[in-house]
């Protein structure tokens, strides 16, 4: 029984949250890695693109609320999500037209693209704060829990409860669906394959008659979709605050690099790796060991490896280790 309790405890505080967070990171990292694979630069504006998409979704959600539209037990934001994606897609296409296309034409160095993305980041950051303000926003509604801790205890008779928030379950389900759709698109459709071809060998893709501008447009639209979905899921699961989204850049980049920049499969693996490390390292294991160990061996401290304030350090440490020992990432990305 104690072993079961210990496991449930771990599931409740580490596995379930990390699965949800990992899915969010994976979606974010997929966007970064796609942009990297096709446009060949690290997009520093990605966090703020997520924030923008989430903001539009929140605004539409509020509008739905004011009209009395809701999604029943599911968060209304899901209904607003397509609007958010559409607005974000238009936004990134506009920035591509106004900013990046020029540098593609003059074949600028990647670092110039990165600096340009800093400028875009500033602007998006300003827009988001200007429109919705810099404060925390909670926009989750509908049924809060799929399973509450109390229900779980009654069901199983265990002392520990396992709570699964609707948003957590939704995050994982949506992430899986999105990833399946994305991989189907990349591996099975002509357009998807032409994107991979372009990412693989730009010159040969041109020789084969693949239109680079079309590939770029599709990439931006997909990245906008991924960013908005990731942002909305993160916001539903936790809360929406523009600055937090900016800070997500680090774990997202860490995920993409760990998996190998430009490699979509790697981005997903990287997302979960970073999320699990972050949650596992900052969890206080005192109670967990209390279940497993005899009473006299019970730990005194919190048994927490690192305080939650340092969760960014975990992404960073993983990043540094990968850069030191395997700079192309675990799944062999494009970049060295």
């Amino acid at each position: 029984m104690d072993i079961l309790n210990a496991f449930v405890l771990l599931a409740n505080f580490v596995i379930v949250p990390a699965l949800a967070y990992g899915s969010q990171l994976a979606l974010g990292a997929l966007g970064v890695t796609l942009i990297y694979g096709i446009l060949r630069f690290s997009n520093f504006a990605h966090g703020d693109t997520m924030a923008f998409g989430t903001m539009v979704t929140i605004l539409v959600t509020w509008w739905f609320w004011s009209m009395g539209i809701s999604a029943g037990p599911l968060p209304t934001a899901l209904l607003a999500l397509p609007f958010g994606i559409a607005a974000t897609a238009l936004l990134v296409l506009a920035t591509d037209r106004a900013v990046y296309r020029f540098y593609r034409r003059v074949k600028a160095k990647p670092v110039i693209f990165v600096i340009a993305s800093l400028g875009v980041m500033f602007i998006l950051n300003g827009i988001v704060r200007f429109v919705i303000g810099p404060d925390d926003r909670n926009f989750a509604d509908g049924e809060r829990f799929l399973v509450t801790a109390r229900e779980f205890r009654q069901m199983t008779g265990l002392r520990e409860g396992l709570a699964i928030k609707t948003t957590q379950a939704l995050t994982v389900v949506i992430a899986i669906l999105v990833v399946i759709a994305l991989f189907w698109f990349l591996n099975r459709t002509r357009t998807g394959k032409s994107m991979r071809a372009y990412s693989d060998n730009e010159d040969l893709a041109l020789l084969s008659g693949i239109d680079p501008e079309r590939v770029v447009v599709i990439t931006w639209v997909i990245a906008a979709g991924l960013a908005t979905i990731a942002g909305v899921l993160y916001g539903l699961d936790k809360s929406f605050k523009p600055f937090t989204y900016f800070q997500l850049l680090l774990p997202i980049f860490a995920s993409a690099i760990v998996g190998g920049l430009g490699n979509p499969l790697g981005a997903i693996a990287g997302g979960y790796l970073v999320a699990f490390s972050e949650v596992a390292v900052t969890y206080a294991y005192k109670k967990f060991f209390a279940y497993l160990l005899p009473e006299r061996l019970e730990p005194e401290g919190l048994m927490q490896l690192l305080s939650t304030d340092y969760k960014f350090a975990v992404s960073f440490a993983i990043l540094i280790l990968v850069l030191l020992f395997r700079p192309t990432g675990l799944f062999r990305g494009k970049a060295v």
Partner: peptide, 16 residues
């Protein structure tokens, strides 16, 4: 390593 990596690593160390 490539220039983006230095950028991301410096971003990280600053946060830490």
């Amino acid at each position: 390593l490539r220039s983006d990596y230095l950028a991301i690593a410096t971003l990280g160390i600053a946060e830490i």
